[in-house]
Design a protein around this nucleic acid. Sequence first.
DNA 1: AAGGTAAACTATTCAGTGTAGTTTAGGCGC
DNA 2: GCGCCTAAACTACACTGAATAGTTTACCTT
Lengths: 197, 197
Amino acid sequence: MALSEEKQKQIVDAAIAEFQEKGYAGASMDRISCRANVSKRTVYNHFESKDVLFSAIIQRLADRLNAALEIAYDPDRPIRPQLERLAWAEGDLLTDPDFMKLARMVMGETIRDPELAADMNSRMTKTAVFEEFMARANADGKLHAPDPQLAAEQFLGLIKSQGFYPRIFTDAPVSREEMAGIVDRSVEMIMKSYGRE
Amino acid sequence: MALSEEKQKQIVDAAIAEFQEKGYAGASMDRISCRANVSKRTVYNHFESKDVLFSAIIQRLADRLNAALEIAYDPDRPIRPQLERLAWAEGDLLTDPDFMKLARMVMGETIRDPELAADMNSRMTKTAVFEEFMARANADGKLHAPDPQLAAEQFLGLIKSQGFYPRIFTDAPVSREEMAGIVDRSVEMIMKSYGRE
DNA sequence: AAGGTAAACTATTCAGTGTAGTTTAGGCGC
DNA sequence: GCGCCTAAACTACACTGAATAGTTTACCTT
């Protein structure tokens, strides 16, 4: 139903804000329902517990990440713009304030438990896509990266060390202009190391 | 009193572990007293509230950081080993599991509030020491860094981007050997950019 | 006498439930 | 289109039970 879906969206939005501000333990279901302009019972009709609600939000973040990074290597196009596009797939997320807020929240909750954090990090860090891409370009003779996994990690590392980690503690993500520079420099570095132009 | 001091240490250690595991909101004063093998009243005799106890731990971390970084430029010694020593002052902390655990805890608590996070970051990031050092070496003619603040940030950034950020989510800090490499490469880069040998 | 212990106690917050009543949207006869 | 019905979804609110910050009291140890 349309109404139900709308209520659900209100709940999720309110929950994101509440979890973001107070953390999991500090968040209150009463406040969430209040922020969502919805009765507490409705919250529980949509999400059977606080935990389920929290997990649903995490899942939403992961889904979004996976969707954004569905990029495959195309042998018919030159390598450099493809690397740029790949970098921008990550860059788009990192320049989005909402994504960064969500990411910050998840990090705050998981950082204390290294195992959980590692799991979350692997769900959030789609090295696999980068790795696959590198391996394909390699096989196609457009790159010369003996260790595609390392190359993928370096590529992502270059982007995140400039565009993500330094901004975890800040309200403002990197601007599109800054990201353009980051993408350029990162692609340049990968091309210098592994390029075959 | 010696006994009292010992109890206090037990309390602080237990509190660190508890805050680390559960976060501020999730931590329980009952569990802290239990972990410390101390009565709850004793906890409250030493620290008048949960908040005070938490702050005391933060302060302890900040103090340790400040103490570790009390390094001044010495015009009578060559610049490179002095840069290495400065880098190692930071490196020592980053290779210490206890320090990293504390840092992770503080980050988890502050990350949600950008203002608090920025404040904490400034308390934890002693750019000032690096900056002062750079400026002195500059005035002494051993370095040529037109913007000492930038140079200091770059120096620290090089170290932290390799030795800190990638390890926030991991249980294991960088090893001393890895840190040696990080220090070498970072000093090398600074010398290449600003050196006058 | 100084500091510690143990355990009960207060007051509060909060996750989650139960219930009785209300809104909404769509279907159906007309 | 119009009134009427139904069922699902929502609301308001009181309630339970558990956890928890912080206090009090009476007693113990060195």
